[in-house]
Design a binder for these strands. Structure first.
Lengths: 140, 140
DNA sequence: GGAGATCCGTTGTATAGTGCAACAAAATCC
DNA sequence: GGATTTTGTTGCACTATACAACGGATCTCC
């Protein structure tokens, strides 16, 4: 087994490599949705509606960036803003039907791509890899 | 053990989440070097010098993008271009001493951050996680 | 050995994503 | 009730990126 430090270097390098290519692949996979807009749509759907400030905090993005992305998604008819009855400052963001359809389609295409890439992995290895990634993601 | 499809969804989601945050963290970690310039400097050093076309292919970037990043790195004195004796069209890119120093420092800071994040992981888990990432990265 | 194809890098142009700062409106806190 | 905080928008600047057009060098094939 390689040393702990060398393994950490590998993790760092591979995760960074993945990040470098992610945007490119995302745009190839689904030209209508960028990595960011896809992620925003996914988050608000997963949470059953949330505010722009929550999105910004979750993705470590500036609120102005989120504001513009939300505007773009709204113009595309993929998302709508609802007044928050408890707080007139905030808006609750929800995907529209069109947004949900597009999101399902994008998820499906992504799943196909990932499945192809992991085709020669055993079920056990896939499950363990998923566990490690979840654990890693939960740390920070 | 969760199903294969659900594990693939997890892998997709976690890797995407990582990609979303990578740029932000990279700029926090080392303001002088963006994720891209860091990666370029790292690649040409790891390979012991390579051409811009190799960099573009490796990162799936347009050659014009690489050309501009290389120009920026050269202006910062972190990289130099050498004539390729075998092919007058190409240039061989190499990190300067300053570039190597900065790269070592950036790597060290990144390693510290990763080490902290993985502090409660066992050596075995880290090694397996690194293996999975390497295997994943090698697929595509 | 030469003409055309190909490869390598640069530059012009356009676009997207991002952050910071300033702002407005609403809520919260003494 | 005034000060502070929160939420979102907008103006501005900058970076990263792609595509297209180009110039120079090399290679291929006849």
């Amino acid at each position: 087994m390689p040393g702990r430090e060398s393994s950490i270097d590998t993790i760092q390098r591979e995760l960074t490599a993945f990040a470098r290519r992610a945007r490119h692949k995302a745009s190839q996979l689904h030209p209508d949705l960028s990595l960011v807009t896809y992620s925003i749509l996914d988050l608000i759907t997963e949470r059953g509606g949330c505010r722009a400030a929550d999105v910004a905090a979750h993705f470590m993005l500036d609120k102005s960036t989120v504001s513009r992305q939300v505007t773009a998604l709204e113009k595309l008819g993929l998302l709508r803003r609802e007044a928050d009855p408890d707080d007139q400052r905030g808006q609750i963001l929800r995907a529209t039907e069109a947004g949900l359809t597009l999101l399902r389609d994008a998820n499906e295409q992504r799943r196909i791509a990932f499945t192809a890439r992991l085709s020669d992995w055993s079920d056990e290895d896939i499950a363990r890899f998923a566990d490690y990634l979840t654990r890693y993601g939960a740390e920070g």
